[in-house]
Write a protein that binds this DNA or RNA. Structure first.
Lengths: 220, 220
DNA sequence: CAGCATCCGCTTTGATACTG
DNA sequence: CAGTATCAAAGCGGATGCTG
């Protein structure tokens, strides 16, 4: 990207990050950790292959990304954020918070990826589920290109991009009403109207909609 | 900007904000409040006039910017952030924090504007100057296209883009060592070596370098 | 198959000139 | 002051081909 030529921290950041696709590459690496070139292409539908290669080279030159040879059994390159790159998390978090009101509806030809949704859930569900006693619970989501498992334990919510043998609750349907249900914006009845089906114990949702103690507040 | 077509909050934000110059326009409006078209051009050196007009139209259509007719004596249009636009402050703050390490040196042909520096100072000096008793102090900076006055009071630092009749301390010189001095990264001797001169009571700087109680920590 | 590089048509941007 | 108009240059998207 052509430099803005300004002695200003915002402009200097955008000199590095402002090109098309660049911040989405950082999103991929934050959400999934080390990625192969092919994984990145899958998470960036529509990117031209030459642009991905060029952006990775630029980010490496700027000290945001490093490439490493994967351990012996696997013969591939892994792209990973440097410590400096990890420090971009507050930027991506702020963009996620601001963008939430724009998620009203998934256009029919929008791409959806489980790890995008999982990262947003992890951000917004931090600070929920205050530490009650009692067992941990699991919720499995079927809404994108792969399953997501939410694990609720004392004081924390974790996401994983795996399936679970016997979740306490399984939710399936389009992403928007599932997100709405988990974030407490939709009731079960409303989510059902919009295509969400479930199997299991709906009462575990109450642990998610408990008063928020910390973390970013999604705007109204 | 061409949409990324992703059902992801980051991508949706970048659909609105990702065009070249767009986030810098938001920076201008956050740092200075309502601006005339001409003020924006001054704060965005190098922008093509047609691009500024187009970006403002796009941001207005997205509900980020509103235009208002200035009160009667002045016959001009004012551009201002909407409430939704104001909510971008955390995004700009995160970019400012991340970009600070890139401010090592002002290139000879970098543009510098007082309101960019003042906004960064206000961000990083929040939480400094714990509430001691004693009078308030003022520091005047001469480092860019106009004076900046810092006012230190109990528990807060305020910036203003004005001159002060009799500041407790006046600093003049290139922006980088002045910022370094105020943020506690450079000693007075180091700043002097790099071209900073002063007039007045240097001890007021100690109030700025007191332990930080809150606010973003600029990275090492 | 993973990780690119090249080519080409299209879109966006930059620089300048011009207008109500 | 607040924009439009114009046109060359740069950037991007999509397809294809190359190399281990």
């Amino acid at each position: 990207m052509r430099s803005y030529g300004e002695y200003c921290a915002v402009a200097r950041s955008l000199d590095v990050l402002g090109d098309r696709w660049t911040l989405l590459i950082v999103r991929e690496l934050l959400a999934r950790g080390g990625c192969r070139y092919t994984d990145l292409r899958h998470g960036l539908p529509g990117i031209a292959s030459n642009l991905l290669a060029e952006r990775l080279r630029d980010l490496e030159a700027e000290g945001v990304v490093q490439r490493e040879a994967a351990p012996p059994p696997i013969a591939t390159t892994l792209f990973r954020l440097t410590a400096r790159g990890e420090q971009l998390r507050p930027v991506l978090n702020a963009l996620t918070v601001w963008g939430l009101p724009l998620m009203g509806r998934a256009e029919p030809d929008d791409a959806v990826r489980s790890h995008w949704l999982a990262a947003a859930l992890e951000l917004f569900l931090v600070g929920r589920t205050p530490d009650e006693a009692g067992p941990s619970h699991t919720i499995e989501l079927q809404t994108a290109d792969g399953p997501i498992t939410l694990t609720l334990e004392r004081g924390s919510v974790a996401t994983a991009l795996v399936s679970t043998p016997h979740p306490d609750l399984a939710l399936a349907g389009p992403p928007m009403p599932i997100m709405g249900l988990l974030l407490g914006r939709l009731t079960v009845a409303q989510a059902h109207e919009r295509g969400v089906s479930w199997d299991g114990d709906l009462s575990v949702l109450d642990r998610l909609t408990a008063p928020v103690l910390a973390g970013p507040q999604p705007p109204a």
